[in-house]
Design a protein around this nucleic acid. Sequence first.
RNA 1: GAGCCCAUAGCUCAGUUGGUUAGAGCGCCAGGUUGUGGCCCUGGAGGCCGUGGGUUCAAAUCCCAUUGGGCUCCCCA
Length: 420
Amino acid sequence: MSTTKLTTHHGMVDLLPEDTEKWNYIESVIKDVARRYHFQEIRTPIMEPTELIARGVGQLTDIVSKEMFAFNRGDDQYVLRPEGTAPVARAFIQHHMAQRGGVQRLFYIGPFFRAERPQKGRQRQFHQFGAELIGAKGAIADAEIIAFMMEVYRRFGIENIKLKVNSVGNPSSRAAYKKALYEYFVPLQDQLSDISRNRLESNPMRILDSKEEQDQPLKEKAPRITDYLEKESRDHYEEVQQHLKQLGIPFETDPFLVRGLDYYTETAFELISPDLGSQDALGGGGRYDLLIEEIGGAPAPAVGFACGMERLLIVLEALNIELPSAEPPDVYFVTRGAPAAKWALETMPGLRSKGLVCTMDYSGRSIKAQMKDANRQQARYAIIAGEQELEEQIFTFRDMSESTEKKAAMADIISEICQK
RNA sequence: GAGCCCAUAGCUCAGUUGGUUAGAGCGCCAGGUUGUGGCCCUGGAGGCCGUGGGUUCAAAUCCCAUUGGGCUCCCCA
């Protein structure tokens, strides 16, 4: 092939004007929820040191072992960030944010990258919003984070969603649980799926995540992590549930909900929607009391969530929830002849400074074509100017939806538009 | 990494058992109104039928490969 078509890479999409209108809208709603919860935005670089992600997310995770966009430049190793929590934790440490006192309430919104095979609700460049509450240990913080996440979906009128919560305890109770799980599954390993059997040695908790048909009956009688929690963890978990009930947030407990990463502790939660395909998670999160220490900071308890924006849009689409489209122009200048076009060009800034949206034809087409364009763009008014109008400074002012028009001076036209 | 499905105009899709010059609707451009939109009428532009090879007198149609897309598993948001 002699020529190559230049298109986006696999799993990367362009957002065209009709898309960005929607994105801007959902971003504005998310930011408004963040504002009311008094979380402030943090923007970290899109590239991070590879080691941060490897240590923060975990060497053994799929994300680090096979899904990173990573490259070297000189002696530096870069990776396109695959998730948001480790970068925020890094910034928290780097800028000594613990010294600011109190609890840091941070939210983010932006692109992330994972080299997965694209499918519905999963792109290689995808977008998440999320929040982190760093420095708070109590169950109130967990509840606040979950409430924040749920509020976003409530604001969009999305009701058909399920919040699942669990507790994964602390490392020592989790170790005891892993051992129990291992001992439970070993005699059954011949009945397990291949994938689950492989996990038996490396990470038996992941077997609980399995969607394989044949694993389901075996999972049912498996030991539950909640029976292995230490008293402190149990109390914390209990308290989180109490808070959620008090807040009127429906949820169900799922003893098999696990998060594979080692730094996760205590509360884990996931928000799922039946309106998504096989990628049914809208968002998820949990407590990660050990992460900050793991990547070199002074120990600090933290809890956070992350949600997929593409998945939010899929659900909005499935529910036929109307999102605003582009704002139509208030005024479309229809001109005839070069002097009139020049006049329109020079007149528009004055209207724009009054907050009006205005546009014109830029290619000297026929009046008819310009009217058609004004109609297509759903302009509220057309102002028609030719030689005669310029000379008299009296213009044809047409109300496009009423199909009425009159002659008037610009000052009168402007005041009439601004009145309505 | 594994599996299944799909590929014809800008978009959505027809295209019979292989058979002349590949079609429709929408959209786009223009004319019908030499200065007026939506409805209507007329005309036009726009396709190497994803790409490469094969079978055949003849391929959008059959076969193989390849690329791209969709979906599922895995994993995750």
